[in-house]
Simulated scan of single mutants.
Amino acid sequence: MAGYFAIFLVLATVTSGLIWLLDARLFAPKRRQQVETAVAAAGGKLPEETIARLTKEPWLTETARSVFPILAIITVLRSFLFEPFQIPSGSMMPTLLVGDFILVQKFAYDVKDPVFRKNLYRNSLPQHGDIAVFKFPNNPRLDYIKRVIGLPGDRVIYRDKQFFIQRACPEELQGNCPGLEQVRYTFAGDSEFTQQGLPQKQYTERLGDRSYSILQTPALAEQKQRYYRQSGTAIDEWVVPEGHYFAVGDNRDNSQDSREWGFVAEELLVGKAVFIWMSFEFSDNPDRVLPRWVPSGVRFERIGRIQ
């Protein structure tokens, strides 16, 4: 089931449209008939004020007629084209920061209806390195955003804070399948960010033809005891089932992702994050007079396409 806002938006659009249509087909003709009857009774002429009073729409119809086109446009844009999201946590740092407002391209993957999320149109599927928004598998009312590391059929290993991938092998290549490939990354320098007061380091990771930045906290050990256990594999190894994806945060030591809760089913996909349209900065200064939820600045330099 879609989020409550999506359901409310669809219901509001349908309700206002039905009210407008019902009035146009049933009540408006009756009002016009009243005017014609009154004109005939008055000998062919009525004051403009009387005509306006007799043809005036009820306030509910007038409101529905005014808001329906706006609601319809918003519903179509939000459901099938682009939907705005706000980044609430630091799991995708440094790519996405708390306070970033992003646009998610809904038609990048399968197009779904906004209420029951059933496929309406088969489009493309996520690729290695995509930043995808999806419904959290353990609670589909929550939206998560992560980077896609593993595709259906991929064998994914995360060992010593390093990803290795053996890509899915099509049937026609059986016997000549690719081997285990290291997802290479290079040191990009000490980061300005910290985790639990510990310094973080920034790396540039390359997955296929995608390059992007990630963060690691060297002082923190891998939390393998929290990893999702898949039958028949090692504790730090996963084979992505058909119709599922393996998605992780760019802030590798500060992200709850597929390493902990498993795979993302294809039907849970919402869309692909493509653009930062606004970015607010928030202050943690305890001496600040304004509440923490009030922005302390705007990061105009972050506006642009998402890598």
Rank of each mutant, 00 (worst) to 15 (best):
R141M: 06
G197D: 08
F136N: 09
P114C: 08
C169N: 08
L173K: 15
E192A: 13
D113A: 06
L97I: 07
Y185E: 14
Q174I: 13
T186K: 11
E171T: 13
L142S: 08
G153Q: 01
V104N: 08
R206T: 15
I149F: 00
P170Y: 05
A108H: 02
T194G: 04
N138E: 09
F107M: 14
P137R: 01
T194H: 09
K146I: 02
A132S: 10
T194C: 03
N123M: 14
Q127E: 12
C177A: 08
P199R: 11
Q196C: 04
F193K: 10
V148D: 00
K118H: 13
V111D: 11
K146F: 05
E171H: 06
D100R: 04
R122F: 15
R159C: 00
R159W: 01
A188F: 03
L97Y: 08
P152C: 13
P170G: 07
K201T: 11
Y109L: 04
D190I: 09
Q105W: 07
E171R: 11
E192L: 13
D190Q: 12
P137W: 01
D130A: 05
S124C: 06
L207V: 03
H128I: 03
R141A: 10
N139A: 11
R147M: 00
K146D: 03
V133D: 06
P178E: 04
Y144C: 07
S124Q: 15
F116L: 14
K201H: 11
P170S: 09
R122W: 15
A168S: 14
Q174S: 12
G179V: 07
Q166T: 02
P137K: 01
I145C: 09
L97V: 07
N123S: 14
P126R: 03
I102R: 01
A108R: 08
R155D: 05
P199Q: 10
F187L: 07
D190G: 07
N123E: 15
G179Q: 10
D110K: 11
Y109F: 14
G189E: 12
D143I: 08
N139S: 11
D160Y: 02
F101A: 10
R147G: 00
Q195E: 15
N139D: 15
L173G: 03
Q166C: 00
Q195W: 04
A168W: 07
L173V: 02
L207I: 11
R141D: 13
Q195N: 14
Q196K: 13
G99Q: 05
E192V: 14
Q127W: 04
V104H: 05
D190K: 09
F193R: 10
P137V: 04
D154G: 04
G153K: 01
Q202C: 04
G197N: 08
F163C: 02
K201M: 12
D154Q: 01
K146S: 05
Q166E: 15
F193L: 10
P199Y: 04
A108C: 04
F163T: 00
R155A: 05
L207C: 08
R147T: 00
V104K: 10
G189D: 12
V98C: 04
E192M: 10
Q195V: 12
P152Q: 11
P114G: 15
V111H: 10
P178M: 00
G175K: 02
G189Q: 10
N176W: 05
A188G: 01
Q105Y: 06
L120H: 08
Q196H: 11
E171K: 11
Q200F: 00
N176Q: 14
Y109R: 03
Q174T: 12
V156R: 03
